[in-house]
């Protein structure tokens, strides 16, 4: 009896949102990442874990259109036609990154305009996408500040007057306000206190679920991966050594390196 099922028969989405094939990036002799391939489906959250230097951030930059891989392709199906993001013109890629994608940087200063008000930071993304009505832009910005738990009274303050956790929440509002189909996050909770992390994680978890976002999250924190992701890829020396459902990989790791990672934490 054939038990292989085409997920389409279960009324799941018929096509992946992102198809990655053979992505490799070299720095001279050194491997940044090599032969990475996967499909990401709408609403799926993929975690990339591994220790520093494993190639996970290099891979994220290749996937997010920031750093061109030496080999391989990244196919995005967000619009009418599938788009190979590295074969289109720079301008087209930038438009895509501004409208259909969002990138949450580890350091909020890399994702925010520090000399522009909180409301301006959020509103700017809307204007990039064609919004022109000042009242509506401000109203939407205000709504998003509240969704990320920033008090309405802070709308005219600049990010440099915010704490680290608030800056990170503001960056998330700035990214999500334009309703991207796909979000990339690089260590979104790195550098924050544990209590601040917990709040941010819960916020991300709820937003990802409510918006049905597809996301790729790079983290070295397996507890973060457990909470936020559906699937995991484990990287070592630039290569994916193990992948699968997040709970499979964390609870029944098969590769020696994954076993080492999961046994090195106290509780996941």
């Amino acid at each position: 009896m054939n038990m292989q099922v085409n997920p389409q028969e279960l009324a799941l989405d018929p096509q992946p949102l992102l198809s990655v094939a053979g992505v490799s990036r070299f720095y001279g002799e050194r491997i940044g990442c090599a032969d990475v391939a996967f499909d990401l489906w709408p609403g799926e959250v993929l975690g990339i874990v591994g220790e520093s230097g494993s190639g996970k951030s290099t891979l994220l930059r290749c996937l997010a259109g920031i750093d061109k891989p030496d080999r391989g392709e990244v196919l995005f199906r967000g619009g009418a036609e599938p788009l190979d993001i590295y074969s289109v013109a720079e301008q087209e890629r930038r438009r895509l990154m501004r409208t259909a994608w969002g990138i949450v940087h580890q350091n909020p200063r890399d994702g925010l305009r520090m000399d522009v008000s909180a409301g301006g930071n959020v509103g700017e993304r809307l204007m990039d996408n064609g919004a022109r009505h000042y009242g509506k832009i401000r109203e939407t910005a205000l709504d998003w500040l509240q969704r990320v738990e920033i008090a309405a009274g802070r709308i005219d303050d600049r990010p440099r007057q915010f704490s680290g956790g608030m800056q990170q929440r503001l960056q998330i509002a700035r990214v999500l306000v334009s309703e991207p189909k796909l979000v990339f996050m690089d260590e979104p909770t790195g550098g924050l206190d544990v209590s601040v992390q917990a709040r941010l994680l819960d916020l991300l978890r709820v937003l990802v679920r409510d918006l049905g976002l597809a996301a790729i999250i790079v983290t070295h924190d397996l507890a973060v991966a457990r909470l936020l992701t559906d699937r995991l890829m484990v990287m070592k020396d630039g290569r994916v050594v193990e992948q699968g459902l997040t709970d499979q990989v964390l609870d029944d790791p098969h590769h020696a390196y994954t076993q080492l990672l999961t046994s090195a934490v106290l509780t996941v």
């Binding site: 038990m3 292989q4 099922v5 997920p7 279960l10 799941l12 489906w41 799926e44 559906d230 699937r231 699968g244 459902l245």
Partner: peptide, 9 residues
């Protein structure tokens, strides 16, 4: 052998 999103479903 089901893919992750089928297992989740």
């Amino acid at each position: 052998t089901a893919v992750p999103r089928t297992v989740l479903d």
